[in-house]
């Protein structure tokens, strides 16, 4: 299959990219292209123009910004996984990113591209949500920061306006000693997650002091399992207590019914996988 015709622009700066988007409401941003190019090939989308960010150097890389780690939107998955800062301060990001697609796709696909695509079956949105990430957008009016909880609005829809660009993602460093796990459940290696669970757990002695739980593919947006987080606070780091807390995992979720599974099965999986993910992260 072959994409329909489009115009192409590869600006050098964020400002030029934003200007190009502002000038053409049917333009689309091309980041790594690993979701967009197949969509164009299947002719599921007909943008007039692609604004390719590959030359915008300021969008690449990871930097330490004191209490937060900042990942440039055009940082490739493979670079995120290998980055020492990410491994140190946002290990959950590295763990989930390592499960995205396959090595060749991770060489092209980008952190910002995956988040801006906002596929609830994607692995990274739940992580951004669980870690209280701030997504920084730049538009004609300047920059603004959007909390992950506000960023993902619906299936493939974000809070970005058509002339805004996701430029970087600020991930607050977790204070204290945390351990993390991303539990992905899919039918074959290449398949998208039927359900995924992103967890970070801080233990204090024999109990769980704090936990973060984000769910992949349990609704039209990623879901923060706040009831589980609340239930885990202060409980003993033991299988029984974790299992009990994980029973709340599906609360408030509206997962899809599709080829991957029916909603009730996904809710069941969310409970089982949350239990496993938290137990693994907590070293139980």
């Amino acid at each position: 299959m072959i994409p329909a015709e489009f115009d192409y622009l590869a600006p050098d700066t964020v400002a030029d990219a934003v200007a190009a988007l502002a000038a053409d409401e049917d333009a689309k941003v091309l980041a790594g292209g690993q979701s967009l190019i197949p969509v164009l090939r299947l002719r599921l989308s007909y943008p007039t123009q692609l604004v390719d960010l590959r030359k915008v150097q300021e969008l690449r890389g990871v930097r330490d910004d004191g209490d937060a780690l900042v990942i440039g939107a055009m940082t490739r998955h493979s670079d995120v996984v290998a980055d020492p800062l990410v491994q140190q301060h946002a290990a959950l990001v590295a763990a989930a990113t390592a499960t995205v697609a396959d090595p060749a796709v991770r060489h092209r696909g980008t952190f910002g591209g995956a988040l801006a695509h906002a596929d609830p079956a994607g692995d990274l949105a739940a992580v951004a949500l669980a870690l209280d990430a701030e997504l920084v957008a730049e538009g004609p009016g300047g920059r603004r920061s959007i909390a992950a909880a506000d960023f993902f609005q619906d299936y493939l829809q974000t809070a970005l306006s058509p002339d805004e660009l996701l430029v970087e993602v600020r991930i607050p460093k977790l204070e204290g000693t945390w351990s993390v796990h991303y539990e992905k459940f899919n039918r074959v290696a290449q398949a998208w997650a039927i359900v995924g669970v992103a967890t970070a757990v801080r233990r204090e002695g024999g109990s769980i002091a704090e936990a973060r739980v984000g769910l992949t593919n349990m609704g039209s947006t990623p879901v923060r399992a706040t009831a589980v987080e609340a239930a885990l606070r202060g409980v003993p780091a033991e299988a029984g207590a974790i299992a009990e807390a994980a029973q709340h995992a599906a609360e408030g979720t509206t997962p899809p019914d599709d080829l991957g599974g029916k909603a009730d099965y996904r809710q069941h999986l969310a409970r089982v996988l949350t239990r496993r993910a938290v137990a693994t992260a907590a070293g139980v």
């Binding site: 091309l30 292209g33 197949p38 090939r41 493979s78 090595p103 796709v105 060489h107 092209r108």
Partner: peptide, 23 residues
């Protein structure tokens, strides 16, 4: 046409990529 099969994999600047999903 969906970047699944990998038959078209080449090395681009030292990294494997699926050449059907690169312009």
């Amino acid at each position: 046409d969906t970047s699944n099969c990998g038959s078209c994999t080449v090395s681009m600047d030292g990294d494997s990529v699926k050449s059907c999903s690169v312009l």
